[in-house]
Design a binder for these strands. Structure first.
Lengths: 253, 253
DNA sequence: GCCGCAGTTATGTATATACATATTGAAACG
DNA sequence: CGTTTCAATATGTATATACATAACTGCGGC
């Protein structure tokens, strides 16, 4: 009894070896077999009590690993029946959307920000549609440009709901871009992004110094914090200046 | 002693009440306070032993909740110091990329698939660059169209690595689109997506029945299974036919 | 043969306990 | 006064145990 886990060289595969906890090792062993295809979708993975015997550990430890695999969507657990490898369903990918300064500096180019216009106004019907706002409270409308080197990199059109972020009314946004300013102030938020291609209209074409009608990538983001609409922003990129990258790696717990 | 958890009406907030487990309730209580801004970034959340007293449960139960919050990125845990609300960093969003049939049918339009061309060949240098392939093994190159009603909805150019998916060599892809065919066969995969705007060239313009030079959304996907390149696919959509949607909700346990 | 009621089984959740580990703050010491 | 040491503390991981719950199995009664 007791025995409280010494966990040194046995098992035998003697691979690299930063100190992984046991449940993490179980998790990665199993997910590797699933991702390699050794255990195909539908395959029943060993019962908890079998893994308990294999790894000489308690059921809680095995359970921790399997619960995480289930939450990650790699397996499905059914009482009385066991745990089964799921078949991959919707292709989901994680899209990381960084601050534009970061994007530009990652290209090795100097970043510059310019505020083009700023209007405080009572929200129009169009504003309310973009922000998904009920009341006709005040909003701040901003137009900005982000440069990579000498060339315009992105055009930004933004609405800020002043009912949610009152302090924005006192900020000119000459020096700070509204994105980082909001991130520093609004604690945690949910967001929805819409991505599409458009032809540049005259206004955008001038702002981005491209031809009217040229293809552009548009990323629109709507942001909520604590259920309240905070901001709506539309970024427009010239076709050749920007590519979004999204990755998906199942689990990697 | 024992007491093994009866867990009925106390606490007092008497809200809705589908049967949440205790650690889930702790988790959602805390994440609500973080997301509402009540606990701002940097705030120290109660110690495990304090929550233990508040919820009258064991430390393991509290620990389970806090560990999950840490893994979800909402809090940061430091030994000896406590757990702290993190400040949100990179805006990350989950982009769900469904099968095109699903996308089209979600619009309420009839879906039709058409195979335009199919070539089996030894991989060219360009093929190898797209697939990130080392050897010059055989590949299958496909060109297809997806229709929504009478109009072309998307154009698909695909390479399949026949070293990874040998059976594809025997499939004509007249009736089945390569996407669903592969998903049913390749167990689990990692993927990388690149999204950008382009102007339609002559070939694409003809295929999508749009004007040459019109803006298009391009989604490229590279897929691996068990570290081996499986397929590279480029979908091209006419600007007005398609919008990608990505959502981000922090945590949601 | 069919239906309902146990019993069995695997997972789900929780407890009390034990020991490991990183970190901090204060006491002891040169 | 600065440095080293040490104990206190909060989290990290694991154990053994207990009971709950869902779902499948088979048995018995009709």
């Amino acid at each position: 009894m007791s025995m409280i886990q010494t966990m040194d060289a046995d098992g035998g595969d003697a691979d690299g070896g930063e100190p992984l906890s046991l449940h993490q090792r179980i998790l990665s062993d199993i997910s590797e077999r699933i991702l390699s295809g050794a255990w195909a979708p539908g395959h029943r993975i060993p019962f908890e009590h079998e893994l308990t015997a294999e790894y000489k550990c308690s059921r809680m430890t095995v359970n921790k690993a399997l619960s995480q695999l289930a939450k990650a969507g790699l397996i499905e657990r059914r009482r009385r029946s066991g745990s089964f490898v799921r078949r991959p369903q919707s292709q989901a990918a994680v899209l990381e959307i960084h601050d534009i300064r970061i994007e530009v500096e990652a290209l090795g180019l100097p970043y510059r920000y310019e505020r083009v216009a700023r209007h405080k106004r009572r929200s129009s019907a169009e504003d309310r549609a973009l922000l998904e706002l009920d009341s006709n409270g005040p909003v701040l409308a901003l137009e900005c440009r982000h440069f990579a080197g000498k060339r315009p990199f992105a055009h930004e059109q933004r609405l800020i709901n002043l009912a949610a972020v009152a302090e924005a009314a006192n900020e000119e946004f000459f020096a700070v871009a509204p994105g980082p300013w909001l991130i520093a102030r609004v604690p945690w938020s949910a967001a929805e992004h819409r991505i599409r291609a458009v032809a540049a209209d005259r206004h955008i074409a001038t702002a981005l110094e491209i031809e009217s009608g040229a293809p552009c990538l548009v990323v629109e983001r709507r942001t909520w914090s604590a259920e309240h609409p905070v901001t709506h922003v539309r970024f427009t990129y010239a076709a050749d200046s920007h590519t979004l990258v999204a990755r998906f790696t199942p689990s990697q717990g």
